[in-house]
Simulated assay, not measured.
Amino acid sequence: MYKLNLDIQQFIGQYWQQQPLVIKQAFPDFVDPIGADELAGLACEEEIASRVVVTKDKDWELIQGPFEDYDKFGETHWQLLVQAVNHWYPDAQPLVEAFRFLPDWRFDDLMASFATPKGGVGPHFDNYDVFIIQGEGQRRWKVGNKLADTRNVKTRGGNPDSPLIDDFEPIIDIVLEKGDVLYIPPGFPHCGETLSLAMSYSIGFRAPSQQELVSQIADELIDTNQGQQRFTSNEEGSAPGIISASHQAGIMALLTQLSQDPDCYQAVLGKLLSQNRFELDICEGEEAYSTQELLDALEQGASIRRIGGLKVLRLEDDASARLFINGEVHPLPGTDEATLQQLCNHVMLSPDEALALCRQAEVLELLCQLINKGYCYLSE
């Protein structure tokens, strides 16, 4: 277990999405959840997102995985980064649990990195919140003031496709050691440089953009044949070539109506926010379980566990009793709110907890379905 040494209420009130923060010894006696060899092994797999960044005289080369050999990179000036390690390496999940004081819908993934001396990714900024946890070794981090407008940031070398930006004046310049944590909100430029062979971990939290929301709303309206209302008015413009201000406002008010109607936006949000950016390690068995076989397994002491990264969400004040799981809607019309919350909040159900829940037939059906889809699995 990882216990974060942090005053959570103070952090959310004073720093969350506002200011960066260094938390020395946030994890006393920190133990790396994964070793360098295991991380390199994950980066060999085609379905796992990985990359190597090579530092070259104030420039950086990005090489996408998978990787079969690392000898060509030498002993210094490079860094391996592997995304969604929590999906593929169950021993990494306890580190994620330490940050579940923030809602699951925001959680993106746990990225792990192995870096050689002088390795780093260069100055850049992110559009999401990130906690950087230092494992073995040391890395020096610099963080600058928040960028005024991230849409017009000058990229390094004037390359619009580059994720890197010009150097910045740091407001934080710190060497992180094992167990230290650096929190960086969106829009704050930062860069890291490795001082000795090092393992580190980044836990990211995202929120949807307007583009993502509008796209998801459009898909939902088409799929459900909603959104058929058209603009009407009792007055017209003063000239044939003019779109009057009142017409502009009236047309856009159609979108406002959608955003205020829970029947339109709740399913959209549930589906969107329960999806993952990275592939899940689906754990399908060779043969499907029947509900009776599942009950038998629970009676014999099996627990039910989610696969890493799976999001099970419930909308507060939802008009329907349902769960949103990996972008899908699961109606549970006969299930009480306490049970829905338990299914959302627990990544593992003990045999007794699962058996108690399975007294409700539709919950039993759901759990059996999730196991057969490979979203959950039985463990000792």
Rank of each mutant, 00 (worst) to 15 (best):
Y70G: 11
V121N: 05
I165Y: 05
N145M: 06
K58V: 03
Y89W: 15
K56M: 07
L182Q: 04
F168T: 10
P170L: 13
P170T: 14
G157T: 08
L182V: 07
A49T: 13
N145V: 03
D109C: 05
L110E: 02
P186A: 06
E177H: 14
W60D: 04
N145K: 14
L95A: 02
D71L: 13
R100T: 04
A49N: 07
I132E: 03
K56S: 09
V130I: 12
S162N: 12
P186R: 05
T76R: 14
G65M: 09
G122T: 11
K72D: 13
P163R: 11
D71A: 15
W60R: 01
G135K: 11
V53Y: 03
G120H: 08
I132C: 07
V121P: 00
K58D: 15
S162A: 10
L102R: 00
E68R: 14
L147N: 08
I133T: 14
P123W: 02
E169S: 13
D167C: 09
G187Y: 06
A49I: 03
L62P: 00
Y70D: 13
L182K: 01
N152E: 12
P123M: 05
L176Q: 11
G187P: 05
N152C: 11
Q83F: 06
Q83H: 12
S50R: 06
E97Q: 14
E75D: 14
T150H: 06
V85K: 07
I132L: 15
V130M: 07
D59W: 07
P185R: 07
G120A: 10
H124I: 07
I132A: 14
S113G: 14
G144P: 03
D69Y: 13
R100S: 04
F99I: 01
G157N: 12
I184R: 02
Y89F: 15
R51V: 09
F101I: 00
W105M: 01
Q83L: 04
E136W: 01
D149T: 09
F73A: 09
L176G: 07
R151W: 04
Y183S: 00
K142A: 04
A98I: 03
W88A: 00
V153N: 05
H87Y: 02
A148H: 13
E97G: 08
P117V: 11
G65A: 06
H124V: 05
W78P: 10
N152F: 12
L95V: 01
R156F: 08
V181L: 04
D69E: 15
H87P: 01
I184Y: 01
I133S: 06
S50A: 15
V181Q: 00
K146T: 09
L102Q: 02
I165L: 05
T55I: 01
R140W: 05
Q134P: 08
I165H: 05
N86T: 00
G65N: 04
P94G: 01
G135W: 10
K154D: 09
H124K: 07
T155M: 10
R51E: 06
V53M: 12
W105P: 03
V53N: 02
